[in-house]
Nucleic acid binder design. Sequence first.
DNA 1: CTGAGCACCTGAGGGC
DNA 2: TGCCCTCAGGTGCTCA
Length: 270
Amino acid sequence: MPELPEIETIKRGILPLKNSIVRKIFRSSLKLRIDATKKLDKIIGSQIISIERRARYLIIDFNNYHSLIIHLGMSGRITIDSNFKNLKHDHFACQFDNQQWLIYNDPRRFGFIDLVESHDLNSHKMLKNLGPEPLSLDFNHQYLQKKLANKNCNIKTTMMDNQIVVGVGNIYINESLFLAKILPTKMAKNLSKKEIINLVESIKKTIATAIEMGGSSISDYQNANGELGFFQNQHQVYGRQNQDCHKCGCIIERIVQNQRSTFFCKTCQK
DNA sequence: CTGAGCACCTGAGGGC
DNA sequence: TGCCCTCAGGTGCTCA
């Protein structure tokens, strides 16, 4: 699924729905990770007052003091269309007063749609323990240095922990560690101050560049208008096992950490 | 409290 | 063509 840059791209794509009023709701009978089916009717007749992103969650606020939380899991997709065809894996759809449909499609169903009263949003179990946004000032080397001290875990897995920093998924941590020249297997507590400064900057740069390019389109990711992102063309290590490192020409290796693929260049990264 | 591993699902692609 | 295996943008839960 989409990482932060992909969600940000989708958010920008559905921003024009602001001020729209919900007319109809569709919900498939299949289970998502959270079952909010019974609550969803509450937004019928309500108007969207804001559309935001927090970590990998899309938050849509309505004027009746309810907020819709959308998470795309690994395979979720959101599209805007003037027709709703109820295709395979369409699990939620919502028609607005301008006749447009917002359609949520998720083959693996690792995602969810939930509805809460807006004042309870921050205490939602998926949102309450989130760390800082990678592009915020709160994510800086002083902060990270504190978090990594005594951390007995490899740096790659550590940085994918949403309590440390949100939205840095498997593509972008692999790319960020390459950019920062740090081995993914290095113990988090053993990073030097210089490496931590470097890593913070590399994550910010990687995420910001990916947002500019509309995210990474691998397999079937596309934005709300069905367009593809282009950041995958910039990948230095992700998905490039056995290919030449663009910097030094050595072979990119693939290992598994915490059941996720890790790609790195053992010459460039120390 | 921490870290490791599992669970939740479907679909694509490769080897035989 | 089909079967069996591995792999995939995530994240909460359980167990030692």
